[in-house]
Structure formats: C-alpha cells, structure tokens
Write a protein that binds this DNA or RNA. Structure first.
Length: 573
DNA sequence: CTAGGGTTAG
C-alpha cells in the first residue's frame, strides 16, 4: 500500500497489527513487525488513535513487552473501557495480576464514567484467581449478578475458575451446576482442573466420564487437565488408560500430554518407564517434558536421569535459572559438592538469577505481598519472631530444619535464618496476626512450596488451631490440625448454608450501602435511593473496610426500613 | 470493513 501510495486509515493499522501477531511463519519476529507498523502509525499521527492504540496495547501484551503497552496506554488522550480492559488484560496475562487489580481499581475510581463490561470482568476475574483475591472476586460476583452477566457462559466459566483457584471448590461446583445445559467444553475443563489442583483425582476422572457420556467432545486441554489431575492424585493406571484413550477421541497427544505423563510416571517413582516414554515419542520432546523428568528426579534423588534431562534443558532453555537450581539441589542432596559449585559458576557466568520467592495474602480485601528475606517490610522482624517461636516449639517435638533446600555455602545457623525468612512463612505469620480466630489463612506462592515450609506450616496449623491453605504454582496444600489433608475448606462449608447467589447479593447490598457512609436515620431515604441505584448500575468499590458487624447492621437497617430487595434475588435465580 | 475475554502445563 505504501509503495502504491494508497492512503491508510485506522482500519489499515488495526488489521495490519493483528496480522503481525498471527504471522508465525514470517522470518521476521512478530515484535519487529509490530514496532515497524507502530512507527509508521506514529509518523502519520495515528499512534494515539483510540482503536489503533488499543490494538497496539494488545499486541505488546501478547508479545510480553509490558513496558511498551504501558507507554502507549499512558500517552493516549482518550481512553475508553476497551482500552482499559486491554491494559488490564496485559497485566493479567503477563503474570502481573496485582497490577491488573490495581489498574481496575483506578478505572473504577476515575472521574470518567467507565462502566466495566463482561470482557473487563472476565479479565479481572482471571487476575483475582492469580493472586487468590477471594474478597475482590466475591465483589465481582455480586457485580455480575447485578448486571445480569450471569447469563453469559464465558463469564461464569471465569467466575468458576476464580473460586476454585481461590480454594472454594464448592462454590465453583455451584456455579458449574448453575450453568445448566449451556455448559461448554471450557466449563467442563475448568471443573476438571479445579478438582485436579486440589488433589481430587477420582472426582476429576468422574467428571471426565460424565462429560464424554453426555456427548461433549474432550479437547486437547481436557486431556491436559485430567492427566494433570491423575498426576496430583497419583492415579498412575487411570492416567495411562486415559492417555491411551486419546486416539479414540481423535486427539493426537502433543508434547504437553507427554509432559503430563512423564510427570505422572516420574512422580510415582516409575522413572525408567518415564524415560522410555520420552524415547518413544514421535515428536521432539519439549522443554516441559524434560522439565517433568527433572522434577521427578528431584523427588526421587536420581542424579543420572537428572543429568540426562539437563543436558537437553541447558541447550533448549539456557536462560531458565530454575533448571540449574533444581540440578544443584539434586547434587547438594547427593553430597556432590563440587558439582554444585560448577552449577553456581554457570549461573553466575550466564548472569542468571533465581526467581525470588514471593507470597501473597489478602486481608480485608487488601493484598499484601512478601518477598523471601525481605528487608524493606517493617513488620518482617515481628513476623520472623513469631515463626521463630513456633520453630522452637517444633524442635522440642523433634523437628530438624530442612536446611538442604538452602543452596548457599554458609553455616547451618545462617541457613536456618534464611529458612525463617521464606516468604510463605512471613505470609502465614501475617495471616495469623491479622485475621480472626476461626478464619482460614489463604496464601498464594509463585514457586513450589519448599519441604521445610511444608512441615512448619503443618505444625502451625495445629499449634495455632488454624486451617491454612497454601496455593503454590501448581497445586493446593490444605493444612489442618497438624496434617496435610485433602478436604474442602470450612469457608465453603459455610457458603453452603445460604443459597450462594443470595448470600453474595446480600453482601454486596451492604457494601453499596456502606459506601455512602454512616447509617444514620436522617440519611435514610437518600441512602436507600443510592443503594438501589448502586445495585442496578455501578456499585463496586474496592477497599471497603467492612466488618461483619457493620454488614449485619446494614441488612438490619434495610429490613427495618422495609425495603424489599427480594425482587433482586428473584431476578437472578 | 476497526480495539479488549474464559479452560491447560514441570
């Protein structure tokens, strides 16, 4: 078009940019293509055109170049819901859920009348799931009900995933059931993976059977989910049977499925069989496949296969520090200290850094983050002291700190100190201090839960009489009464008492009411009007420091004033 | 004739 001097317009840019992302066959990397068109658009003064800029944000989001997306977003003179959603989605899909939530709150607080739509909601739900922000997620649930978005299967699927990733299996199941006959493959997949990540392997397989019996064709993702579920639950034979049944459903196993199988076999200790499977593959084993093998080698302390996996991995993904760390860990536990040293030198040589351990906890709808060996947070000393007390108790019970997980070459005592500073321990301590007795402590962690934290948290659950749920990168750990248990959280048991949607709505009514401020008699009428208006339109505000007592007061107030809000329940059930 | 979304994985 340029050569022929055909004039371009915003449409040209939008389509051109989208094509860049799709152009996987091109010799030029997609990012270079996008930048080229971006530059062109800037020269023609189209760089900040609302549609063009929004497309640019999305392109950079898909390429993982967050800073470019941010620059475009910041420079836009006019931003609408779609632009905000694109930017929120950028954070959400690039593993920065905290920023996504913050941006969403900023959007809700802005003076412009930006009304989130179903796509905004889906994006932000995804972010809530990412950081275990259950309180935030419930507010969104209320919003969904008020806006009638619960008629959209895509929204319900995202909501279901949010609940399950926040540890509320029961609520997730409830949503699933409420979808009725409109369930699509994604709904089924979400339920299967939800059961899987909680260790409910049999239930996941059962759902799979139910799904196929109803004539729903399982997808590639269905098999990843159900095989993953078998792996978490140690269902080796079941997994093998499902893997072999894939051809019956016209699904050819991909590298991802092999990765699941290698994980399943390896975790169960069938390392030879896992290696045989890799060697029998008709496609090139992906880094994930070798990674599964390496992970299994760490559990079963198998040096030889670990080296075999790493000889491939160091070649395939030389910049992934995790692989070096895992192998170093395996060497360290096998007391091969010189090999550990070699790996550390390698890490330094390539200027690679371990991903810092990081944990989140949501308290009163506010998110708190902890980094391992955090010196900035003023509360850390207090938290560490608390953990230290538990550890002293534990040592009397015969506990020995598992300093094997610390790879630094330092004194035992120093190693123990580092263990005390692990982010999940800090988060657990913070949770104990800042939530009431009987409340469940929910933690999210960006890496795997280390063995020491596992045993310490287990002990704390008993000693502090608290249920603690830790979600790490790939599964849930429920701790109750000194044991690692497979169970539903009591929070979801409480949810069962009231029909879920009613309860959620009730909560949100109170939230809407309280936003206006005091519950004074003379404000009554204005308050009512405001609350109802909020219910029907833009009610969500995000940092309401609401105590349970205040909520009850609000509900009582409504009853007292004789406001009939039952029609709202009927509307949505 | 334009823009943004849900399920998976060591």
């Amino acid at each position: 078009m340029g050569r022929l001097r055909v004039p371009v317009d915003s449409y040209s840019y939008v389509h051109g940019l989208k094509a860049c992302i799709a152009a996987s066959a091109s010799h030029v990397p997609a990012s270079a293509l996008v930048c080229e068109i971006h530059a062109h658009a800037i020269r023609r003064c189209y760089g900040l055109h609302t549609h063009v800029a929004t497309t640019l944000i999305d392109c950079y989001a898909k390429l993982g170049i967050i800073s470019y997306a941010e620059s475009v977003f910041a420079a836009m003179p006019e931003r609408n819901v779609v632009s905000w959603t694109a930017m929120i989605g950028c954070y959400a899909k690039n593993e920065r859920p905290g920023d996504a939530i913050m941006l969403f709150q900023e959007m809700m607080a802005s003076d412009e009348d930006l009304v989130p739509n179903s796509i905004t909601i889906v994006s932000i739900l995804h972010a809530c799931a990412g950081v275990n922000a259950l309180g935030q997620g419930k507010l969104l649930h209320a919003y969904i009900l008020r806006r009638g978005f619960d008629s959209l299967v895509s929204v319900l699927n995202a909501l279901m995933a949010m609940y399950m990733k926040c540890g509320c299996l029961e609520a997730g199941r409830h949503i699933f059931n409420s979808i009725g006959h409109r369930k699509d493959v994604v709904s089924w997949n979400t339920l299967i993976s939800g059961y899987g990540m909680h260790g409910f392997g049999h239930e996941a397989v059962q759902v799979f059977e139910e799904m196929t019996q109803m004539g729903v064709l399982p997808s590639i993702i269905t098999f990843i989910s159900v095989l993953g579920a078998c792996s978490h639950a140690g269902l080796v034979d079941e997994g093998k049977r499902l893997f072999e049944s894939m051809v019956d459903y016209n699904v050819t196993p991909r590298a991802e499925h092999y990765a699941c199988m290698v994980d399943l076999l390896g975790r169960a200790g069938h390392l030879d069989e896992a290696v045989e499977l890799i060697q029998s593959m008709h496609i090139r084993p992906s880094p994930q496949v070798w990674g599964s093998l390496l992970g299994a080698c760490r559990i079963h302390r198998h040096v030889e296969y670990a080296e075999m996996a790493c000889s491939q991995l160091f070649d395939l993904e030389p910049r992934n520090a995790g692989n070096y760390v895992l192998l170093a860990d395996i060497y360290a536990r096998a007391k091969l200290h010189s090999e550990v040293g070699v790996l550390k030198d390698l890490l330094e040589e390539h200027a690679l850094e371990k991903v810092p351990g990081c944990s989140w906890i949501e308290v009163k709808k506010k998110l708190h983050m902890f980094v391992s060996v955090d010196n900035k947070n003023p509360q850390v000393e207090e938290l560490q002291a608390l953990i230290g007390e538990f550890v002293t108790q534990m040592k009397n019970d015969g506990y020995v700190p598992d300093t094997g997980v610390v790879l630094y070459d330092i004194e035992e005592e120093e190693k123990e100190k580092i263990l005390l500073g692990h982010s999940e321990k800090l988060a657990v301590a913070f949770g104990l201090i800042n939530t009431g007795r009987g409340e469940v402590v929910r933690i999210t962690k960006n890496l795997r839960l280390c063995e020491d934290c596992h045993s310490v948290t287990k002990f704390i659950s008993k000693f502090a009489e608290r249920e603690i749920i830790v979600r790490d990168v790939n599964r849930f750990h429920h701790f109750r009464d000194g044991a690692s248990v497979k169970c539903m959280s009591p929070a979801s048991a409480a949810d069962r008492k009231t029909p879920y949607t009613s309860q959620i709505l009730m909560e949100s009514i109170s939230v809407a009411t309280l936003r206006e401020g005091a519950l004074k008699e003379e404000h009554g009428e204005r308050l009512q009007k405001f609350a109802l208006q909020q219910l029907l339109h833009k009610p969500l505000h995000l940092e309401p420091e609401i105590t349970h007592g205040k909520i009850q007061m609000a509900v009582q107030y409504f009853n007292y004033k004789g406001v009939d809000f039952t029609f709202l329940f009927k509307l949505h059930q």
